[in-house]
Design a protein around this nucleic acid. Structure first.
Lengths: 319, 319
DNA sequence: TCACTCATGAAAGATATTTTCGTTTCGGTC
DNA sequence: GACCGAAACGAAAATATCTTTCATGAGTGA
């Protein structure tokens, strides 16, 4: 009679009496616990699995069977013993475990970049450092000063942005963005031009200086001129006590990450400066939304057909 | 006319976008990057996968096909497009991803920046988004392509970097840095100059194009010229299947973050591009360490006295 | 409208996993 | 030392799952 055996085979459920949640990360522990109750070949399999989850996750039943010198059946039996419905699920758990211990290996990237670091490490370290820089900058940013700066920029008749070297690019970035929302901004390319421009400023205008060290003469000079002309002046610098702040109504502080030979200060200061500049931009865009939104749309539209100019195959959808 | 050239030079594209090893956790980013080049049903699958990795990992091909209302074939095709050999491997990666976000922090979904967000929120959201962009970019970068690009740059007689608009600033950033370690690099300011420059390139030289859309004619054109001149060409783009890759020996993919009205795509693509550029720079600096180190020190030295020029005391001698 | 391309799913084909079942091994008993 | 029974084990069949092929229909440009 069938029903007689039914409950017998049905009762073969694994540990837990009905609900056997597959082990998440406690696999190594489970292996150790269950090892004594395992047969020799099963132990070999369990050992391999616990020893190299990532490697085993890449193997098929057959592969793992060969690796451990056993058969597919044994592998499946081991998986069952470990609490999974079959090898497929064990493999899935294995992949998860591998990913976990992979990501847990993060602390290694706090070290400086070395000359012989493999390229993958360089990527990881740089990304990590820049993320850190962003977090630091955001945390250290004075929102009151930022708000004041935004208000000044939004109301300005025109804005001058000064920066040299790497900071010059940030200055241009801000300028480009402000132009996009219909505000008047300039980023003079050299000091003479900057000073010449600065002389034209007056109350209601804004001058913004970007310098990491806060001591770059080429940037301080035009800011000083603007300051003396009565313009509202803003400084973005990593040194809140540096010379440039003397002539700044509002000071926005960027974070200073540790630098090393292969990772010049310019790199992290740029990241930091860009975040500040983005905040300024978004703040200003919010305040001038009525005019900014259509201007943004218009400049987007104007660029759209440039993109299609040389289309070669892949269709680009309007997005 | 054009098409004749197109298919001739198009033969170079063996290394396009699909040669990357399976992505570990950069899946969400990859989905976003590749979504535009997907068909409707594939997008549905990709969406399901990105939206609920854990859930999908528990499904078989058939299950996922049913869930998304498509067929097994489509699921497999999607898996392929995402860079995996087949669904089985995608599923494994999915399990890994699920485990990671399980153990990791909460999803921390960011809402878009709203017009009436207080300035503090703007800072927090921008910082978070940019951090996310960095993580995605780092995870999605093909280190093989990156390594090849680094090797080409380090060995180049000279390097041209093309970029327009926001990408133009990134191009300048790279150029500045390369000059600092004694390498010859140019970032022509406009398309005419760029093409004129490109004509001068030959084998052993490098041309690098930076464009988020991958369809910017002004940037593709000089790269094409350089490509046909026999120079090694590199493209940094957010669209690995875009026209620009036709003329690129090495393609470096930047991540595409979701954009909104107040946060234009240019913002996150810039962050992404800068990370890639930094990686290139550090990689090149490593490879040319013998000459790069003294050059870096020298340029640092040369700038040092500029910083002191306007010392704090208010009295400025130099004018 | 027609020819064409391409996305799509049904079903055939290939792999991987699970089950079955017979053989081997081991420990004990006579 | 021979024999028995139970458990371990693997070969191969059976099944589930994944992949490929191919015909169809939707959409597109001429």
């Amino acid at each position: 009679m069938k029903e007689t055996f039914a409950h017998v085979s049905g009762g073969h459920r694994a540990t837990g009496g009905g609900s056997a949640p597959p082990a998440p990360a406690a696999l190594a522990a489970k292996v150790r616990t269950l090892a004594p109750s395992m047969t020799r070949s099963m132990q070999r399999v369990a050992e391999a699995v616990a020893g190299d989850p990532a490697g085993c996750a890449a193997l098929t039943v057959t592969g793992l069977a060969e690796l451990t010198g056993t058969s597919e059946a044994t592998v499946v039996r081991t998986a069952r013993l470990l609490g999974y419905p079959g090898y497929r699920d064990l493999r899935l758990a294995l992949a998860g475990l591998a990913a976990q211990q992979q990501s847990g290996r993060a602390p290694a990237i706090t070290t400086d970049i070395a000359v012989d670091d493999p390229i993958a490490d360089v990527v990881a370290k740089l990304a990590y450092d820049e993320q850190q820089t962003l977090a630091d900058t955001a945390a250290g940013l004075d929102t009151v000063q930022l708000g004041a700066a935004v208000a000044a920029l939004a109301a300005a008749r025109r804005t001058d942005v000064y920066g040299i070297g790497a900071s010059g690019l940030v200055a241009q970035d801000l300028t480009q963005k402000m132009l996009r929302i219909g505000l008047i901004a300039h980023a003079p390319g050299d000091t003479h031009l900057a000073v010449t421009n600065a002389v034209q400023l007056r109350a209601g205008d804004v001058a913004l200086a970007i310098t990491h060290s806060g001591s770059t003469g080429d940037v301080i000079e035009p800011l000083r001129v603007a300051f003396e002309r009565g313009a509202t002046t803003i400084a973005i610098t990593g040194r809140p006590d540096s010379p440039v702040t003397q002539y700044a109504d509002h000071v926005l502080t960027t974070s200073t990450a540790r630098e090393s030979e292969l990772r010049p200060a310019a790199m992290s200061s740029r990241t930091s400066q860009l975040l500040v500049v983005d905040c300024l931009f978004v703040g200003v865009a919010q305040r001038t939304y009525e005019s900014a939104a259509p201007a943004l749309a218009a400049s987007y539209e104007a660029l759209a057909h440039r993109h299609g100019a040389l289309r070669a195959g892949a269709g680009d959808r309007r997005s």
